[in-house]
Design a protein around this nucleic acid. Structure first.
Length: 255
DNA sequence: ATGGTAGCCTTGCTA
């Protein structure tokens, strides 16, 4: 089973690129972030045309996540536990073919000296608590999405320039490592130890042209999923097209 | 030159 994550930065604008990529890459499950629309405005019919079901947690203008799957999704959960007052659309989780899959859009957190950064850290603490609850079930699961965290300086084109950014803060990285320390596996790094492999390139200042990016989109696997992991990679194809998202898809394959 | 890009039911916010 091939599972992918792709921050599309507006599903409306990115639909042609998404559809052509789905036809070429044929993932079984796709976690989308920043769809930037209400569930009722999600292009479900176009995706159904390629054989995908869609579970959508939408929001107007900002955020919004979705889970596409060839097989129907079961037991859908539309928010991250731990804060009933949180109205930002950043989490959807469901079971597909016996694997629990989450599409998550972790808060960016900039600027660091703001309530946005506190919200990011609190969100990561909630994610860890939820991962612990999932681990207790001892079943395969994949937490995939835009984590807005560069795990190490090897995931940053210019660590010094980015050192004050919320994506590279020690507090952000420690919480990301806390997920790994639970036993979750960064699928990409199992096969690709080399530094400077990116999933995001800013639209500004020729970052894509110069390959100056960040690795912030990740698939974290439970031990039961990691035992079946056979491949993972970044697909840079969609980032090089006209009207591209600033992110590109990352995927893993589970036997 | 305190800029630069993209998307949003925009004229500022988010990334």
């Amino acid at each position: 089973m091939k599972i992918a994550t792709f921050n599309v930065n507006s599903i409306k604008v990115r639909l042609p690129i998404l559809l052509s990529w789905l036809e070429e890459a044929r993932p079984d499950v796709v976690c989308l972030q920043e769809i930037k629309c209400l569930a009722g405005d999600f292009p479900a019919l176009e995706l159904k045309g390629l054989g995908y079901h869609a579970e959508v947690v939408g929001q107007k203008t900002y955020n919004g996540v979705a889970l596409l799957s060839k097989a129907p999704a079961r037991d859908v959960m539309g928010s991250l536990p731990g804060n009933d007052g949180d109205e930002q659309a950043r989490y959807v989780e469901a079971t597909v073919d016996g694997i629990r899959v989450a599409s998550l859009y972790l808060p960016n957190g900039n600027p660091v000296a703001s309530d946005k950064f506190a919200y990011k850290l609190a969100w990561m603490t909630r994610l860890k608590a939820h991962a612990e609850a999932l681990l207790a079930q001892e079943l395969p699961f994949v937490l995939a999405g835009d984590y807005n965290v560069c795990p190490t300086d090897a995931d940053v084109f210019d660590p010094a320039m980015m050192s004050a950014d919320a994506l590279c803060q020690g507090d952000s990285r420690r919480r990301f490592r806390a997920l790994l320390n639970l036993g979750l596996v960064d699928a990409f790094r199992v096969f690709h130890p080399e530094p400077h492999r990116y999933t995001f390139w800013d639209y500004q200042q020729g970052r894509w042209y110069r390959d100056e990016g960040l690795r912030i989109d990740h698939l974290l696997l439970s031990p039961q999923a990691a035992d079946r992991l056979i491949a993972a990679d970044i697909d840079k194809g969609p980032r090089g097209k006209e009207k591209a998202s600033d992110h590109t898809p990352v995927w893993c394959e589970i036997a």
